[in-house]
Nucleic acid binder design. Structure first.
Lengths: 95, 95
DNA sequence: ATAAAATAGTTTATAAAATAAACCAAAAAT
DNA sequence: ATTTTTGGTTTATTTTATAAACTATTTTAT
């Protein structure tokens, strides 16, 4: 039996971290994700766009008072992909 | 609490696959690893070198009859790294 | 009131990684 | 005897991740 491919979109520390965080909250702000994942704003911005492009998350840009506010949510499709990724991973790390 | 970093050497599908396979066998031949991981020889060759460089595996080059034979084994250091990687990963995938 | 610094990001450039393509030597098959 | 296959390595290309530079607004300090 040959090893199954891991979803390359999820097999990235930062994107996986973001998805992991979004799994357990209703929604999360850019700054929250930045802190929790310990990433730079630039890198996070790029990776969020990729997740959004894939339809794994939605990104909403509004304002908190007068400051820009970016809010992210996992989509149903993203949730499914995450779960499948975890399943596949079990093949690699053993249960 | 902030997410811990994943060992970048192991957070690669092919290298993780190799390590995963080496976890459960005494040793493995190049061709075996190539088949199981569904990789090209070139890519596998490069990634094996990296694992070897890091001291995660040993590579022994001999001959089977008259054909070259490359045999890989996980090291104690590699085993520890793999286990730590799996542990860290749990932070990301829950459980 | 004004300059400096902080917030909340985006865009672009650079470095690193993964993958593919080209190559090599020997052996086996036609 | 030449073509194909096996078992790889090396080099080139593409992709990805990361860092650096930039923008716009806002807050703080002078």
């Amino acid at each position: 039996m040959t090893l199954k491919d891991l979803d390359p979109l999820l097999h990235s520390q930062l994107r996986l971290g973001v998805m992991s965080l979004l799994m357990s909250v209703e929604s999360a702000e850019f700054t929250f994700l930045k802190e929790k994942t310990n990433s730079t704003a630039g890198n996070l911005s790029v990776q969020l766009d990729k997740l959004s492009e894939a339809g794994y998350i939605t990104i909403e840009k509004t304002f908190k008072g007068k400051k820009p506010l970016t809010t992210c949510k996992i989509t149903k499709h993203g949730l499914k992909a995450f779960e499948e990724y975890v399943n596949t991973l079990k093949q690699y790390i053993g249960k």
